[in-house]
């Protein structure tokens, strides 16, 4: 009866799940194509593919997220090329670098870091460039970058990176000499991690484990579990992972306090209240850094 009266409706209802499945498959294909294009540095092509993925499956959060980011990144890349003001260039570069680094686009990061270093030539940009070079396995280039710094420009960070690059290059004695001269008492979690890497590479395991412990203590609780997993997978730490005490280090708790943000139900008690998005403290901090 229903079929006679409303054949179109029945057909539509019957085919609806299949159509949805088709759309989801098409969206997944487009998204995968977009990722491949992004890896190949075809940003416009990737954006078009992401747009097609979102249109095919608008409810998919991942597609929407990646599309929203890339749709901002594409014009920023063009803007960076035209930007003459040094401060504005740095701001744009920071935004792009963050995107590239989060998406594993190391070639793009390297390009930005090289230009930033060429523009300023200071220790901070050298450290960023060297870090990228080391991550890409270009240790000789990192040694050259860091070696270009004058003695008074070098920092604990650049010296640590130099040690890591030398250790990677097989120049262990030079790396050990650098490691032994580094003071870690005022180091933050990032530098402590790099120092632990260096000491792991030169087989000073006791020192490396102590530094890693302090590093974990200074890491925010919400990030600690992922950070520990990262540490376990870090090739530079392979010497430590085999140590019996490494399990104890992995059991280290953060000494920082942080609420479990549940999307706004306990903001008043959150110690990060002034730093979180939307608070007046965060805006003040943002303006101070301009």
């Amino acid at each position: 009866m229903l079929l006679r009266l409303f054949p179109g409706l029945v057909l539509m209802l019957a085919l609806a799940p299949a159509v949805r499945a088709d759309d989801a498959a098409k969206a997944a294909d487009e998204y995968a194509r977009g990722q491949a294009l992004l890896k190949a540095s075809d940003f416009n092509g990737a954006l078009a593919a992401y747009t097609a993925a979102v249109k095919a499956d608008p409810a998919n959060e991942t597609y929407r997220h990646e599309h929203a980011l890339l749709r901002r990144v594409v014009p920023l890349r063009a803007k960076l090329l035209k930007q003459r003001d040094a401060e504005k260039w740095q701001a744009l570069a920071a935004a792009l670098r963050s995107y590239y680094a989060d998406h594993g686009l190391l070639e793009e990061v390297l390009r930005l870091d090289e230009e930033a270093y060429a523009r300023s030539g200071d220790a901070d940009t050298a450290a960023m460039l060297a870090d990228t070079q080391i991550r890409m396995g270009r240790d000789a280039a990192a040694v050259e970058t860091l070696g270009g710094l004058k003695a008074d420009e070098q920092t604990a960070q650049t010296r640590t990176q130099m040690g890591i690059a030398l250790a990677h290059a097989g120049r262990t004695d030079e790396a050990r000499a650098i490691a032994s001269g580094l003071a870690d008492d005022k180091a933050g979690p990032g530098l402590l991690y790099d120092m632990a890497r260096l000491n792991s590479l030169v087989a000073d395991n006791a020192k490396a484990l102590a530094q890693l412990t302090r590093c974990f203590e200074l890491t925010r609780p919400s990030r600690l579990a992922a950070f520990k997993e990262y540490t376990k997978a870090d090739k530079d730490m392979s010497g430590l992972v085999a140590q019996a005490d490494f399990a104890n280090v992995l059991a280290t708790e953060s000494k920082l306090k942080e609420s479990d943000c549940s999307g706004g139900t306990s903001c008043a008690k959150c110690p990060s209240r002034d730093k979180c998005a939307g608070s007046s403290g965060a805006k003040t901090a943002a303006k101070d850094t301009k």
């Binding site: 997220h65 901002r72 014009p75 701001a91 920071a94 963050s98 965060a282 805006k283 943002a286």
Partner: peptide
Amino acid sequence: SEAYFDRATETWRVSPFAVEGYDALGGL
């Protein structure tokens, strides 16, 4: 509606909002 790079925290934030009348897939 548009994603925002927060310089204070050095993180990208994608807007969780969908504003009626704004085409988030169209031109910028």
